[in-house]
């Protein structure tokens, strides 16, 4: 088959472009390619700077910028990571972050899936108004809750616990989560649900066996969002924690002496961002899907 007759997906044959025109076209677009390469690299530089800074031994910090390693690769060392790992407080705070993120991801998904199913497929008076009300809560700044919940946690005695942080994250994740899941669930074919109901399946059974599996793509998007949101949180943990310090708060407490603590701040910051980054790269598709679904609010 020659190039001129090659057709893709049954489209009309493409008339072959003369070589000269092709060269001109590519050359004409060259500035765009160059611009994109430069901008793309510029976008990566700051993060690269953190990574390299985290790999420079403390005694070499003051001598010059991190870009020296391109000419002096021998400056690179894992020393900072070693001493970071040897710091009990940092290990503890990483573990705290992990627990908060797991709880703060699973609990809101469960609660939101239940509510999302009710809003999508169960009939009750005022359903749509109630749903609009929930969506409206999306915009309530969490600053509105900090003071009363601070007081409440102290009264109930769960201040400064991982559970108290998870509960707060759950509540403030719910409006978006319910919105996202309800809109996804409502797209599940009605026939499937009706068939299950005729077969006498209970609502909870339908929810567990039908809705959750079919809703998995939306749940995955949501899980990534909740995970990133809770993992990256500073404000909530700073307010409701003292000893319970996730990694962001642990770094925050070192910021006062930025210059002298950089050998701890840089690797700790990089560790704190490498996990969300891995999650993001692994599940980029779901992340973007969730973003687009959420943006149409």
């Amino acid at each position: 088959m020659t190039a001129a007759t090659a057709t893709r997906e049954g489209r009309a044959p493409v008339v072959e472009e003369p070589m000269s025109a092709k060269v001109l076209r590519v050359l004409g677009r060259a500035p765009i390619h160059v611009l994109l390469v430069v901008v793309g690299l510029l976008w990566l530089v700051p993060t690269l700077g953190l990574l390299i800074t985290s790999l420079i031994a403390p005694e070499n910090f003051a001598d010059g910028g991190w870009w020296r390693v391109f000419t002096q690769p021998s400056l690179l060392t894992f020393e900072n990571y070693q001493s970071l790992w040897d710091t009990q407080a940092i290990r503890d705070s990483l573990l705290t972050t992990v627990w908060i993120s797991i709880g703060g991801t699973l609990l809101p998904i469960l609660v939101a899936a239940l509510a999302g199913y009710a809003f999508a497929w169960l009939d009750f008076p005022g359903r749509d108004w109630l749903f609009i009300g929930v969506v409206a809560l999306l915009v309530v700044p969490l600053q509105m809750a900090l003071i009363p919940i601070f007081t409440l946690y102290n009264k109930v005695g769960i201040f400064d616990t991982i559970v108290s942080l998870i509960l707060f994250h759950t509540a403030f994740g719910l409006p978006f989560a319910i919105f996202l899941l309800r809109n996804f669930f409502i797209g599940i074919p009605k026939e499937l649900l009706e068939a299950a109901r005729i077969d006498g399946a209970s609502e909870i059974r339908i929810f567990l066996r039908l809705i959750l599996p079919l809703g998995l793509p939306a749940i995955a998007s949501l899980a990534i969002f909740q995970f990133l949101w809770t993992w990256n949180d500073l404000l909530v943990a700073l307010t409701f924690g003292r000893e319970t310090q996730p990694i962001t708060v642990a770094i925050f407490s070192q910021l006062r002496q930025f210059g002298s603590n950089i050998e701890l701040i840089a690797p700790a910051s990089f560790v704190s961002l490498v996990i969300p980054l891995a999650v993001f790269f692994a599940f980029q598709r779901y992340f973007v899907q969730g973003l687009l679904a959420g943006s149409v609010k």
Partner: peptide, 16 residues
């Protein structure tokens, strides 16, 4: 990519 990074860590990055 910076979307996946916490705003807090982004602050540290830019401080460098």
């Amino acid at each position: 990519m910076p979307m996946a990074i916490s705003a807090f860590a982004a602050g540290v990055i830019w401080r460098i």
